[in-house]
Design a protein around this nucleic acid. Structure first.
Lengths: 107, 107
DNA sequence: TAAAACTACATAACTAGAATTATGGTTATA
DNA sequence: TATAACCATAATTCTAGTTATGTAGTTTTA
């Protein structure tokens, strides 16, 4: 798996975190992360999470617009993939600038 | 700096992400991450972010209840510290279970 | 039939002004 | 010189208007 380095702006990062800031959506995303590259159809996610289709569609839209997942249409089904590049960037964002304002001690 | 390994439940993780899922709060948190261990007073954060005191107080409360920051009272000022242990755990959470459902190829 | 779009509504969140509380420093007074 | 009174500052709480979100039923599209 190739991980591309993405540079996030604070708006994008906040949007990304907001997207996984609800238990329902976080559960959906984690399910897709577990599934790896091959992803899962909307139906498969619905089976696993048990949420109503319309609710799930709404959350998938939310996750898609935050660029956390990518949807791919294949015939009649839609396959959802975790966007690993973006997720990596998001995870890194939190502590990226750790301590940059701490004055370094003079020796 | 010692990093403790924290195991997060999905509710806690979602709450944590929700806490940094607003640009205002993410900006506050990043400011505290930059400041490192020594933290920053409410006033210092206000100077940097320019947001009204009442709004800032509200967001700090939110961040505190999600355990992302820790507040320490010192005389008249309240010093805010990023909770690095929790932030590490949150960052790790996103991809922790990556690909666990992918069937491994037989050799 | 699978999935998305549309719709509706109750609930929660964001923002910020005004009032309040808490602390520390300064000045006045006995 | 105590100490009471007062003022300044830091931060929080109260309150309210506005906006966003969560959920899910219904309808549409491919």
């Amino acid at each position: 798996m190739v991980i591309k380095n993405i540079q996030l702006e604070i708006e994008q990062a906040a949007q990304g975190f907001a997207a996984i800031g609800s238990e329902a959506r976080l559960a959906v995303l984690i399910s897709l992360v577990k599934a790896g590259e091959s992803g899962r159809t909307v139906g498969e996610i619905q089976e696993r999470t048990g949420m109503p289709a319309s609710t799930l569609a709404h959350h998938l839209r939310f996750l898609t617009s935050a660029d956390l997942i990518v949807q791919e249409k294949s015939g009649r089904v839609v396959i959802n993939h975790a966007n690993f590049n973006h997720l990596e960037a998001l995870a890194a964002y939190i502590l990226k600038e750790c301590c940059s304002d701490v004055p370094t001690k003079r020796k």
